[in-house]
Design a protein around this nucleic acid. Sequence first.
DNA 1: CTGAAAGCGCTTACAG
DNA 2: CTGAAAGCGCTTACAG
Lengths: 334, 334
Amino acid sequence: MAKKMTMADIAELSGVGKSTVSRFFNGGYVKQETKEKIQKVIKEYNYMPNTFARLKAKQSNLIGVIVPTLNSKITGRVVTSIDRYLREKNYTTLIQSSDHDIDQELENIQRLLQLNVDGILISSIAITQDHKELFQEIQIPVVVLAQEYDEGISIVDDDYRAGKHMGTYIGKAGHRKVGYIGVYETDEAVGIRRKQGVLDGLQECGITDPIVGKSDYSFIGGQKVAREILEKAPDLDAIICATDRLAFGAYKILHEAGKRIPDDVSVVGFGGYDESTLLTPELTTLKFDSYGMGYFGAETILKMIQKKRVSKRQVVDYTFIEGKSVKKNKGDAK
Amino acid sequence: MAKKMTMADIAELSGVGKSTVSRFFNGGYVKQETKEKIQKVIKEYNYMPNTFARLKAKQSNLIGVIVPTLNSKITGRVVTSIDRYLREKNYTTLIQSSDHDIDQELENIQRLLQLNVDGILISSIAITQDHKELFQEIQIPVVVLAQEYDEGISIVDDDYRAGKHMGTYIGKAGHRKVGYIGVYETDEAVGIRRKQGVLDGLQECGITDPIVGKSDYSFIGGQKVAREILEKAPDLDAIICATDRLAFGAYKILHEAGKRIPDDVSVVGFGGYDESTLLTPELTTLKFDSYGMGYFGAETILKMIQKKRVSKRQVVDYTFIEGKSVKKNKGDAK
DNA sequence: CTGAAAGCGCTTACAG
DNA sequence: CTGAAAGCGCTTACAG
């Protein structure tokens, strides 16, 4: 409507002081009768307080969320879950993407600070020294998602245990010659812990010489490393892929190489994208509870804002999803 | 570091007035020498102006982006592209997701207004009367993405022409009994225009009785409608799916029904997700230029903010991607 | 339960 | 090219 109402206008129109209108919006003491008068005027003029003028307010009710990319299913789920929780509690989620660029990520933190967010949830590409310094300076709560962060609060997937689960699963199914397509170690969660879990799981089953490769997160990357592994070990039994997307790449390469899944080579991934079920055969994978991660992240940041006690690290569970990409009794069959 | 520097502090420390510091940040006239003095203090204290205190500023350099969901590849691409463009121009992108809920979408618009954004890019689920009224009231530029908006500025995919392309492609390949899995008509772009293009394209080739179904956007929905179509027309030649995801569903159902793709039934989609190449056989699809849409959207909103002339509607192109899911000479083969 | 007053940290004419 | 002053639209003790 019309120009731009201010709180002073509303106060005048309702015949009260503007402090009272302010209190009305911020849940202070206002008599029922007064409330109604104000309410009426607000409705009529469709008034909304200008968030930007809350200079003196302690809280902005804004929470910043920084994600490494917007092009990911998982990220989408986590953020959706955060937003649902926060919106419910009357907070506004401000999403920033770092587009896989560390400098941009640091810049995002700065921008959110400038916007006076009450807290930041960050799913970082990698926590560098710069991050740590920045987090030290910051006066507001920070929750790190999907990466362990010893100096602070984090919500993490159970990468090690999940990796081990997959490792032993493949091992127990009787595979002997196993390949692993991992990711770079700058990603501690996936690149280090998940991998360690897989290797430990395999080792428990007596598989001590897996062929390990490293890739970026792309479909193309998965293909490239799958090809390399296949060259090194033409007698490959199974490939464990650090993400489903990499498994997609492996499928393609195995297909091209004339290898049948799972009869010649078993394949497993991590992720549990919807798409995994469309592969032929359906991919056996493991799905982390992304919605849970978002939920706990949001819950935790609000608790911190309210100065409540929170645990240093919360571990989110996973679900094993059995597809048809693993040969069960590999050993016996031979 | 320490507490919280203000512009006044910086002014004092640099021995200048705070108006000068303000000008320094906003590109006003400041002598080189003075600039350097200020620069030095800023560096030392790691100072950043508080965006929230810019009450009197005309511009916030904030652009709001509203998307229907964060769980979509396409959306991810569009937003990534917008953010890249805007960041380059020193604007901050504020992303809000409507989670496929109209009320939430309206609420998002309000929230962005409260945050004093300079403009809004909205990829709406559907433009309702409420939207139109809201857009009227709003004093800032609005660009609608992916939906036509006669009362304002929009960037759209060339849905009709793309649909027609697919329709004639399937028709010319000699298919006779064709199914179409569409989406609900609340989505004008996909639900109406894309479909009309497909139907017109088919008709041109003499196919006047396609079996048309409607679905939501989900994998499950695609399966459901594919099943229905198959029941109505067991002698089906081809299925055209309004999105790749729906095509994924169709693949699954055809697979279960023992139909071979493309020998028994050809399948095509729209979308061009990376994943489409992992289907066996690879899906023939059509990819809209999502990065282009983001780019033009961002460019346009900035032009509008600068009161420059912009065209009412910009149409983004597509690329046809030939997979192996269509039988070329269906007619001849029989 | 309510209002007057001071103040939040910036920006913006304005005068110099 | 620069600074003093007024003002942006709210919030917050404070006194009542």
